[in-house]
């Protein structure tokens, strides 16, 4: 209809799907390669750390153990071989899915981890759900009404969540909600009721961060030029808030949700051992207390691997939600 087509147009014209997909695939391929390299780096670091003190065998046994016992452990775990040889052997094992044998349980560490992990996953997922369900509406409401009571509440919850130790909170919850008021079970696994207290205690740190982040993202996005454009179109306040402010603000939450989820795996060490849930955290606690270094090493590598995969998933998800990343490469 108009003859006035910009002369610069072809340069910025979006590519036809084929090269575009190639760029996107390249980007993700690159990220996958990076993640694998990172994984090997982590394995090497953890492996070296365990051997940094010199001889893990002497750490693993009781002080009064005799030289014979120590020598036996050394031989079983190959601590007597040169470190480089141990490392290459271990890396080879890891690639074939063998993370070593537990000293404490006399069993494959990977099998132990795999049997314990689902319980922790359920706990962490529930905690994440608690955090999001409470934090997102509160953060949006606070950021949309700066200085109002709801904003003060959001800031309060945001700070309180970040400063409350989960291991202390779960103790309080057990004493009051569990014992004094008798509302929920005080330990163990079983029904959904067994999940409420530990999941809530585990969620508060993430909840605090989510509230703060959502609130400040909303505050920031409110001042963006495109929000002014949306208002200048005559959109109702609620439409501007929902379609333009909240959607953009929540994008910044995507990147930390994955991070917080992996933090929860770490946090489960407290919650599971206090609430007597036989998950990965409790396994790590037991391994640390028993100085079962092969198991500590395996769990650490497992959690790090999970973290790296989560980061990758987050990146992909972020790319799906933010067209700038999707097309930027």
């Amino acid at each position: 209809m108009s003859s006035l087509t910009d002369s610069v147009a072809p340069a910025a014209r979006s590519a036809v799907p084929n090269p575009l997909a190639r760029i996107a695939r390249n980007y993700y391929l690159r990220r996958v390669a990076q993640s694998i390299a990172l994984m090997f780096g982590v394995i090497i670091i953890v492996f070296m750390l365990v051997r940094l003190t010199g001889d893990p065998a002497s750490l693993m046994v009781a002080r009064e153990a005799d030289a014979e016992q120590i020598a036996e452990i050394r031989e079983i775990y190959g601590f007597d071989k040169p470190v480089v040889e141990q490392l290459t052997t271990y890396l080879g094992d890891v690639v074939t899915g063998d993370l070593g044998r537990s000293f404490l349980y006399r069993d494959s560490t990977l099998e132990l981890i795999v049997s314990r992990f689902p319980d922790t996953l359920i706990l962490a997922a529930t905690a994440l759900a608690f955090a999001l369900i409470i934090a997102v509406p509160l953060g949006v409401a606070g950021g949309s009404n700066p200085g109002r009571p709801i904003d003060k509440l959001a800031r309060f919850v945001g700070v309180l969540g970040q400063v409350t130790p989960s291991f202390w909170l779960i103790m309080l919850l057990i004493v009051y909600v569990g014992v004094k008021w008798g509302l929920l079970p005080t330990n163990g696994v079983g029904t959904w009721k067994h999940l409420v207290l530990p999941a809530f205690a585990l969620s508060v740190g993430a909840m605090g961060q989510f509230v703060r982040l959502t609130r400040s993202a909303v505050l920031e996005v409110r001042n963006e030029d495109f929000v002014r454009t949306a208002r200048s179109k005559g959109l109702a306040r609620r439409a501007v808030a929902r379609r333009h402010i909240t959607r953009n603000a929540l994008l910044s939450l995507v990147s930390v949700v994955g991070v917080q989820f992996t933090y929860m795996l770490g946090g489960s060490i407290y919650i599971e051992s206090i609430y007597a849930r036989p998950g990965l955290g409790q396994l790590l606690d037991a391994a640390v207390r028993a100085r079962d270094f092969p198991l500590v090493q395996a769990i650490t590598i497992f959690i790090a691997g999970f973290t790296i995969i989560m980061n990758l998933v987050t990146d992909v998800l972020y790319g799906l939600l933010d067209p700038r990343i999707r097309h930027g490469g």
Binding site: L38, I45, L49, V50, L59, L265, G266, V288, T300, T307
Partner: peptide
């Protein structure tokens, strides 16, 4: 690369392992 490496292990787990050692 080193910074990314260290930051890719959950902090708490990392600290626990080192402290245990």
């Amino acid at each position: 690369a080193v910074i990314n490496l260290i930051l890719s292990v959950p902090y708490l787990v990392f600290v626990i392992v080192i402290a245990a050692i």
